[in-house]
Design a protein around this nucleic acid. Structure first.
Lengths: 151, 151
DNA sequence: AGACAGTTGTTCAGATTTGAACCAGCACTC
DNA sequence: GAGTGCTGGTTCAAATCTGAACAACTGTCT
């Protein structure tokens, strides 16, 4: 690549739209979660991942990878959620170093209480505005990129 | 809406993919900019917006809206860029309260130096992986959401 | 003029994130 | 079983972000 390859108009429009939208949506979600549940978006995502996991528990590193935050950020957030009683820590039976984050009953019911309002926002601003075709196109696009980024 | 409307499988896949991808890409971009230019992504976006603006200058509030950060975050970042000599502050002639952020010559050449590498990342992980059709579908999808969020 | 509501940008405290440094435990070799 | 390298999680300092509070200015209405 001897010369920089600029983005043409269509490409630039796509990139700009993606960038702004992801930030705007992030802000909106953060605001809604904070207002209705006192949770941050990362915290909410942690609860969701744990709820989906077998045994409602997950290793720290795996969880961090899933939520896409640094290990130290996860340590911090699990601490917060533990203080709130929504998550507990257990040492992993098979690996003495390992830590399992476990969703508590309080965590489950918190999630059940909060999820509908959250999903309503996701619908209102993203999902419900797209046709089925657009939705599928976006999904394949995002999956390609995600796969590349996760190597 | 008496009952919560959950997301079906396709919708959930779309949302999950969008969420993970935007975070992963953000991280990758941040890493690349930090390594090659010592800039954060918001800082880079500020430079881009200013370079595109008439007279290479913009009001603080307008800039904050464009980059999608809070006013205080912009104040902070403009301070950083000013210390680095890439941006200057001027009081707005037509409004005594207002502040104009102006891109300096050093800012222009910094951007010229950094942009190719940045765009290469955007290409490598997103743009070049999509067909023209997927690109356009994604753009219309993102624009609908962006418009809704900016009201 | 003067009052008043709205806008602009900054300051401030508090929360969160990141990467580097670190220690502990695992796995594999000699 | 000691040595070695790798992985897992925490701790730490530094940077950054947000919302609330604030002060200064604008524009409008009377």
């Amino acid at each position: 690549m001897t010369h920089p390859r600029w983005l043409d108009e269509t490409e630039m429009a796509a990139w700009r739209a993606f960038l702004s939208t992801s930030h705007l949506l992030e802000r909106r979600i953060e605001e809604q979660l904070k207002a209705t549940a006192g949770l941050t978006h990362p915290q909410y995502e942690i609860l969701v991942r744990l709820a989906d996991a077998p045994g409602r528990q997950m290793r720290m590193t795996e969880l961090a990878r899933g939520v896409v935050v640094s290990k130290s950020a996860l340590t911090y957030q699990i601490g917060q959620l533990e203080r709130a009683g929504l998550v507990e820590r257990t040492t992993c039976p098979s690996d003495e170093r390992g830590v399992l984050a476990v969703l508590t009953e309080a965590g489950v019911s918190c999630l059940e209480r909060v999820a509908p309002g959250h999903l309503e926002v996701v619908r209102a601003y993203l999902i419900d505005r797209l046709t089925r075709g657009e939705l599928e196109a976006m999904t394949t696009a995002m999956c390609k990129t995600e796969q590349a980024l996760r190597q």
